[in-house]
């Protein structure tokens, strides 16, 4: 793979955002251009432009209400489900416009999986939780194929060993950390290209968190991950790229090391050093 200049390193920032140069070569998977989201009168996200690398973890950090979750939901058009949300700007995945009228959000969401803050397994069996996506998308021709998908997905999510003998138990009977991994397995099962994670560890204990972080690191090999997190330590541990949001704007974006060691914006620095948050 050729090294690709990721973003302009030298020139002045676009808009109000500061972009750090990228030294490692990446392919762009998701590119946003001036994405703004309004909930009625309230502007939740304004003019976010960023390129998100493929097969890497991009972390979105920032204080509460800074728009990072909104940004995440703009990528798989989950904002459509909120009545008064208005999205403008463009989101490109592999160069394809997501907000285009011709794009069926259903198809889009099959390509872009999502994991939520609180584990939300369906109140059905573990098996059915994982099999649901493949079923509605018609990914399995027969039962054997479906079994295979379920097994692989659970293995990829690192849950197989724990649940292999109780696939027919309800998903809600698992512990919080297991539930979150089940939800990740459910997302992987439809073989998405991008996985969005909205604070996936905020409801978990430290041990379960460590387990999920490990999993994220493993998933990086095959998927593009975008993760919203409150914990700067977590962002530093798992991500390659970090974006700092503040009051609905993307303030600074660049390789994680750069952002954490050498923040250029005062607000970024204040946040990272814990002056506000």
């Amino acid at each position: 793979m050729a090294d690709i200049e990721f973003l302009d390193t030298s020139s002045e920032p676009r808009g109000d955002t500061l972009y750090h140069p990228v030294t490692v070569g990446y392919e762009t998977k998701v590119a946003t251009q001036g994405v703004s989201v309004r909930y009625g009168e309230k502007v939740a996200l304004k003019d976010v432009t960023m390129d998100i690398p493929s097969r890497a973890v991009t972390a979105c950090i920032g204080p509460s209400g800074c728009g990072k979750s909104t940004f995440l939901r703009a990528i798989n058009r989950m904002n459509d489900t909120i009545d008064n949300a208005q999205v403008s700007g463009s989101v490109l995945i592999d160069g394809e416009e997501v907000n285009d009228r011709s794009v069926d959000p259903v198809v889009l969401r099959a390509r872009v999986g999502m994991v939520f803050q609180k584990p939300n397994p369906f109140p059905k069996t573990i098996y059915e939780n994982v099999a649901y996506g493949p079923k509605i998308h018609g990914l399995a021709g027969d039962r054997d194929q479906l079994d295979g998908i379920v097994e692989t997905s659970l293995k990829k999510a690192g849950l197989w060993d724990e649940v292999a003998d109780r696939l027919t138990h309800p998903g809600t009977s698992l512990s919080g950390g297991q539930q979150q991994r089940l939800v990740i397995a459910r997302a992987i099962a439809v073989n998405p290209e991008v996985i969005l994670m909205d604070e996936p560890c905020s409801a978990l204990d430290p041990i379960a968190t460590a387990r999920i972080e490990e999993l994220i690191d493993e998933l990086r090999e095959n998927y593009t991950l975008i993760i919203v997190t409150h914990s700067m330590a977590q962002a530093a541990r798992v991500s390659q790229m970090t974006a700092f949001f503040h009051l609905g704007a993307l303030v600074e974006y660049g390789p994680t090391e750069e952002i954490f060691t050498n923040p250029r914006d005062q607000r970024t620095q204040d946040y990272i050093t814990g002056r506000f948050g």
């Binding site: 798989n76 989950m78 489900t81 259903v106 198809v107 889009l108 969401r109 099959a110 390509r111 999986g113 999502m114 994991v115 939520f116 939300n120 397994p121 369906f122 109140p123 649901y132 996506g133 509605i136 998308h137 939800v183 459910r186 997302a187 099962a189 439809v190």
Partner: peptide, 10 residues
């Protein structure tokens, strides 16, 4: 529950 279903592309 709705979000989860929508999230996997239902």
């Amino acid at each position: 529950i709705r979000e989860a279903a929508l999230g996997v592309g239902a």
